[in-house]
Design a protein around this nucleic acid. Structure first.
Lengths: 149, 149
DNA sequence: CTACTTGCAAATGCTTTGCAGGAGA
DNA sequence: TCTCCTGCAAAGCATTTGCAAGTAG
């Protein structure tokens, strides 16, 4: 997937924050940049110990909560139940995940139009046959990343 | 999916426990029966407040840990990061999940051979193109269940 | 000046663990 | 009788929150 340029990302986030009367403070900008550079979901602790080591965890969590509330962020959980945050689909585009079961690193992937349509159709089919109103789907591919394999 | 009969499930679990020198105590039997009846992953708290209300949470967690360690159980997490437990794939068969975003109930589903093969092939294709050694995949369909829709 | 943000410290909630008693083989 | 299992209470850890101080508009 071709990533959104950081400049455009900042602009879109700032606009969305503005519409919700929330300031795009320096701390929040730094956070967005860090997550943009990550290339996949990251935990608060991970960000705190790497790119954002000068930001107190509680402040980081507050940023996370604020951004999640207005849809900038989405929260998932790793195999230990620790929260992982990534940019929302409307900012990042629809995608799926490669999850390395050895080092736990998660990588965003784009299936491409053909395969994506197939997955969407399969999901819709099975949802319908269970009286379920589908609103989305997630496909995680588990295995060993290039480094661990 | 046609569920494994409870009797057969008990037998298989007991055998596996025996091979690991672990007793199939009454408490563990009650737990397996409760999870069998659930039809999808359940949290410790959920089981504690419904079927297993006489079992202390700490004991329940201990049962969970023991059974997870030897592969009887698999642990996932709901949207709030709370641990959910279900029988392992070798006991339950490969399957996917319908997740209701309103009431949070998770239901096991079987795609059927054709669709399952398609998902497996798509996953394998995308894994290969990223230098990733695939060992498995999960497909979650999100939406509203029959009751909430 | 006012409203939004941040940091610290304390609290919360899920989950794990030490230890002593209980029960099955 | 020996080993494994259970319960209670206490500890652990990720995450949240109250409150006071800081800062941008």
């Amino acid at each position: 997937m071709q990533p959104t340029p950081l400049t455009e990302l900042h602009a879109r986030v700032e606009k969305h924050l503005g519409e919700n009367n929330i300031r795009y403070s320096t701390g929040r900008q730094k956070f967005i940049a860090a997550l943009h550079a990550a290339g996949g979901p990251r935990s608060a602790t991970h960000l705190h110990t790497t790119e954002l080591d000068d930001v107190p965890l509680s402040s980081l969590y507050r940023t996370l909560t604020v951004l999640e509330d207005i849809g900038i962020l989405e929260r998932t959980h790793d195999s230990d139940g620790v929260a992982m945050f990534e940019l929302g689909e409307w900012l990042l585009g629809h995608h799926h995940h490669l999850i390395c079961t050895s080092c736990d690193v998660v990588t965003d992937i784009d299936l491409g139009e053909g395969l994506e349509d197939a997955v969407a159709e399969i999901s819709a089919t099975v949802a319908a046959s269970h009286g379920f109103t589908m609103t989305g789907h997630t496909l995680d591919v588990l295995g060993l990343c290039e480094d661990c394999g």
